[in-house]
Design a protein around this nucleic acid. Structure first.
Lengths: 204, 204
DNA sequence: CAAGTTTTGGATCGATCGCTTCAGAACTCG
DNA sequence: CGAGTTCTGAAGCGATCGATCCAAAACTTG
């Protein structure tokens, strides 16, 4: 069960679990949870199915691990964005971060949290629910940040933090869809700038 | 091969092809192209696999037919929206239309053109490309409509029709993702209103 | 009714799905 | 070196995948 702690005895693992997880992440990112077969995954990871099951449990748990890896890596811009000093800075950083992450030339286009399992059959139902929760969390964090901005006078008192958060989060999701379809990075950068052009500011 | 023209001879078809197509559309809409198995489809259609293949060809052609059906039905609001007299009217109608279509209580949530095949394995590659083209067409039509609006003085001379179209289209896609995750219809209506609150108008 | 045409249910195709099993390899420790 | 533990390659599990085949059924036409 353990994957990170090195056991003292027994035959040592012949591969790096984190590196294998990164490879699996790319496959899930590109093909989605259901579209990625075990053969696709283990081929990319360079290990056998037995090793995969011994290390990660099963396909579903492998995806959950990959999603956590995605949060720490490609999606880490969200945490940094939420730490921006102003609400406008937060919104701008979230949108530009989404653009950069979903259009990185050497990685799959789009967002794992969106295209990983947006619509699935029975086999992907749990992962679909997992990603719904993941996106809900993302929205909630933005909303909380904007609530703080209202309290701090950084947003107008009559601003709706939840609705503004929904606006930003919807644009993030839309950007991910556009990127998945091959829309260029520069155009999406201009879009991100346009989207916050009339951002609400408190009366001076 | 024929599906609409009634043959003069032979055993008559025991089901209504259009009705069966509507049922298949719902399955693709809900589960995506790859997530919908032939068993899922034929069960919902109430016909055997032999009848499906004789009538529609194969799974891929069935999806193409379902997409056309989707355009004529749930997605028909786009044509009406583009016929609105003003650019603001067009944008508003596109966004509210997207909200209503993707959150209809008695139909699958989300948009077939987005979640039908956003990320796929090898088996879904062609359908994925089909939907990329479908979304590109959608964007192009909005852009052309906004180009006309600039020419007619309905948008400022320095407005960027392509970028405004990308803005609206990205919000449509984002709304589809939100709806697929269960976000409520009323909240998305407010979002649609917020998104066009500062729509550019020509100097009076 | 007989001939010709098309559809239908049921069985089944090879391939692939996610997953398991197991013997042997590769290591640590006494 | 022997005992104990863990990992790995290969083979294969039952189930399902999309797709096909065929004989019986159901119709039109002559």
């Amino acid at each position: 069960m353990e994957t990170t702690r090195g056991r003292a005895t027994g035959r040592p693992r012949g591969f790096d679990a984190d590196e294998a997880l990164d490879r699996a992440l790319l496959v899930f990112w590109e093909q989605g949870y259901e579209g990625a077969s075990l053969a696709n995954l283990t081929d990319a990871m360079g290990i056998s199915t037995a090793s995969m099951y011994a290390t990660f449990g099963n396909k579903e748990q492998l995806f959950r691990r990959a999603l956590r890896r995605y949060e720490e890596g490609p999606s880490a811009y969200v945490v940094a964005a939420l730490a921006e000093p102003t609400a406008l800075g937060v919104a701008t950083a979230l949108l530009t971060g989404a653009v950069e992450t979903t259009t990185c030339p050497d990685r799959p286009r789009g967002c794992l949290g969106v295209q990983g399992a947006l619509a699935t059959g029975e086999a992907g139902r749990e992962i679909r629910a997992l990603l719904v929760g993941w996106r809900d969390d993302g929205h909630a964090k933005i909303r909380e940040r904007f609530e703080r901005a209202v309290a701090e006078g950084d947003l107008p008192p009559d601003a709706d933090p939840g609705l503004l958060a929904r606006y930003v989060h919807t644009l993030q999701a839309g950007i991910a869809v556009q990127a998945a379809g091959g829309v260029g990075r520069e155009e999406l950068r201009e879009l991100a700038a346009l989207a916050v052009r009339n951002w609400p500011v408190p009366a001076a």
